[in-house]
Design a binder for these strands. Sequence first.
RNA 1: GCUCACGUAGCUCAGCGGAUAGAGCACUUGCCUCCGGAGCAAGGGGUCGCAGGUUCAAUUCCUGCCGUGAGCGCCA
Length: 592
Amino acid sequence: MEHPPRPIARQNGEPMADPLVLLADRFAAAFHAVAGAPCDPVVRPSERADAQVNGALSLAKTLGMPPRDVATKALESLGDLSDMVESTEVAGPGFINVTFSASFLAKELVAAMQQTHLGVREASDPHTFVIDYSAPNVAKEMHVGHLRSTVIGDALVRALSYVGNHVVRENHIGDWGTPFGMLIEHLIDLGEENAAHELGVGDLDGFYKQARQKFEESDSFKDRARQRVVMLQGGDADTMRLWKTLVLESTRYFNKVYSQLGVLLTDDDLMGESAYNDLLTTVVDRLSQAGVLEISDGAEVVFADGFTNRDNEPLPLIIRKGDGGYNYATTDLACVIDRVERLGARSLLYVVGAPQAQHLQMVEAVARKAGWLPEGFIMNHVSFGSVLGADRKMLKSRSGETVKLAALLDEAVERADAAIAEKNPSMSAHDRESAARMIGIGAVKYSDLSTDRVKDYIFDWERMLSFDGNTAPYLQYAHARICSIFRRAGVHREDVRSVVPSLDDPREKALAMRLLRFDAAVWEMIDTLSPHKLCTYVFDLATDFTAFYEHCSVLKAETDELRLSRLALCDATARVVEQALNLLGIDAPEQM
RNA sequence: GCUCACGUAGCUCAGCGGAUAGAGCACUUGCCUCCGGAGCAAGGGGUCGCAGGUUCAAUUCCUGCCGUGAGCGCCA
């Protein structure tokens, strides 16, 4: 795996909604004519016009012409642009500033909004993605450490599916290994009924800690635990039954958290470590057949190029330990085989924290060395940073313990509930409860998704629940306000969808431009596997809407025609905001 | 020690090799009998960690250094 992660294959084929893409097509042809060879016209959003075309500057050197002359010649060979463009001008050292015609944008907008995907292009080469994310451990509490993986993974699943890919969710839970000896023995000590209850109500940490403590303090318990591991690995029926109890009660608890969090994961997505047990000997056999397996210090290992330990010696990936046992590298390689050969994946995404970067790189290197990853196959580490507290250290509870995810989500909903009660006292308690859930959970998810995932971010209740700034509540509010406009107008949203809006006011035009860039925003998120790109877009959209709303009366518009036109812009905005939030896994209430 | 990531306004963060580096919060000053003021407009605030290099053009790409965090053979 490379760093930074290579973008997944660019899939966005034919242009559709984004006016910048349409413009780039025209200019590509023009520059081709001027340069005599294909070249990128470098079309970008502009602060000085609707778009700027920068291709002339890079071309000037190779053509030996002043850049402004190149720009002028490109404009000359462009032909008639009047169907989409109002004006062009050569500016500065050789930029071409382009202003779109309002009628073109209005026509494009109506066309985009009549599509089910609001103008977002389908993948031109849809295929199977396997996304590995969330991955809590059985008999251990889900904590903030699982938040990012779960939330980012969920957003990527939604976006990749939206454009037409087949996406397989894989929740690689930690349900196997030596700790299960002690956990099962502790289960027996407690009595199955009691233990199941304790796990079922979510006191997983207590259970795990008690087992751990006994393991460390009692030699006889330690012996029992070790024997139990052997029985587990041997498939002893009674042991397996006890193990299944642990897994079942834990996953039942995970599902409660997932439901609270509003992510797509279900029991069908569970693919724990234990699921690959039968493949582990296959991994060893196939590595051996491929001639890459070596013995080192009594362990069976593979040396991949470019990895060294702290003494600058080659660093192996250990496939089989000296005692004959397997470890997580073996399981991860089994996953690769399973996902490529059984699931037919062409892209593997691992939504896993940054500290695992080297491990995943080694797994990929070994899989490639063994020939398990076909040409063009993409294995990508969707790395992310840590959640920090106000002290810039890993987020901890007041008592210094890891923060339980369930408790954190409860607090989010409580805080949102209080905020709504204060700001909208007329709302019924029942309505408020539903809105508080959407807002509280949305705030937590959005604060996680809205900054570059590779960086650490600081968890701050005040900021994420603020109704100002780049937050979920601000976006949700923009959506709710539009819903309110339609309630007051007494107009059905669907009834304005064939209205071609007039875009005479600059805010109307800016809003329409932004709406048409939804396509580009979704694809930027997919191409870079970065949900924050879409967050930035929705925030910009909400900002543009607010400016429009402030300066362009909707319900009090001068004419009925203008009123309908602006209602159409409102409807389009609400749909794009709602859809964008949905791709991020965030609900948009109609009232709040 | 080696490797990787990060370092942009007081704070939290955007920034796709392109023009005078942006936003939110906070701060200052205005506006408004306002469709949900959870507003709008304007202003102050930056040697983009430091130093080189590539380029017509570098916050963006490359190298080195400094700072912070993480990882570095039988845990997962």
